[in-house]
Design a protein around this nucleic acid. Structure first.
Lengths: 149, 149
DNA sequence: TACGCACATGGATGACATTGACCTCAAAAT
DNA sequence: ATTTTGAGGTCAATGTCATCCATGTGCGTA
């Protein structure tokens, strides 16, 4: 992965619809060369996929929530990870250092929906303690790509 | 935005390179109709852009970090937001409820790099107190789309 | 009933990705 | 020093695809 690869990735990250000829012009390569590099980057896994960056509000997911979670002593950690991976609202789940075991990031349409989320966690006997943090605004929102649909 | 729009978005989110004919087959529309719907979704802002989902490790950004930040009393909040928006390492920055003012998410190549990040925050006179949390593993990693390049 | 709008269709057109044959350069082997 | 090898580039041919437009269709409204 050299500078040209990085440049190509940078251009595609901003606009994945740019033509190979266009990109080639920007990096000084023929279209087919750009194509071959993209093919290699995809094959190697550096590019995971071509996808969309969506507007959460337009998708009805206005509220961004972070939940710190300490699992129950007797919780099945593997089951929890699988649960998180398949949960449509959970955008990210990280095992973290510090006082809490997991940090979960999710989007809901409105705050009341968080209650249902936590209740479901409890029902599955995962939830020990938790702390919920809601984003009021986002100077740097990050990209939004739902999992399921 | 109806069910068909959602289905189209879902398909494109998984693979934004699928052809219009292919998508049309899945949703029961002619290619040109799918095209028109995508055009509308993009024009309305529901689709922000076509982009890439990258492998952070392949990009040399193995370490995921969350930093809780309380700004200095005399900090220029607007300047901080701008700083965050332009910082290449900061993937997200949210103004949040709770004991801390901001939650910042960033990726670095390795933990030692975090020190430089915090030092820079201090130099800009933003940083009051902070607490740093590092992700050990990520059952649900989320997508990765760097900002700059 | 008649009108108008929003959306779907299908075919023409040109742009584009894709492919393969060939070329170039540099590093490794003889 | 010369040959070999391989990675990566160019160019041109090919076929797929996005795009555009003229037309058709159903539905809510006057």
């Amino acid at each position: 992965m050299d500078d040209i690869d990085l440049k190509i990735i940078g251009l595609l990250a901003l606009d994945a619809k740019r033509s190979l000829a266009d990109i080639g012009g920007s990096v000084g390569l023929a279209p087919s060369s750009v194509n071959e590099r993209i093919r290699r980057l995809t094959a190697s896994g550096a590019i995971r996929r071509f996808t969309l960056d969506l507007d959460p509000a337009a998708m009805g997911m206005q509220t961004l929530v972070f939940v710190w979670i300490a699992l129950r002593e007797d919780a099945d950690e593997t089951a929890f990870r699988e649960y998180a991976a398949n949960h449509p609202l959970i955008l990210e789940c990280h095992h973290v250092t510090g006082a809490w075991a997991y940090l979960v990031k999710l989007r809901v349409s409105a705050p009341p929906e968080i209650e249902g989320f936590l209740a479901d966690l409890k029902e599955h006997r995962f939830l020990g303690r938790s702390e919920t943090v809601i984003a009021l605004s986002s100077p740097v929102p990050g990209s939004f790509t739902p999992k399921d649909m």
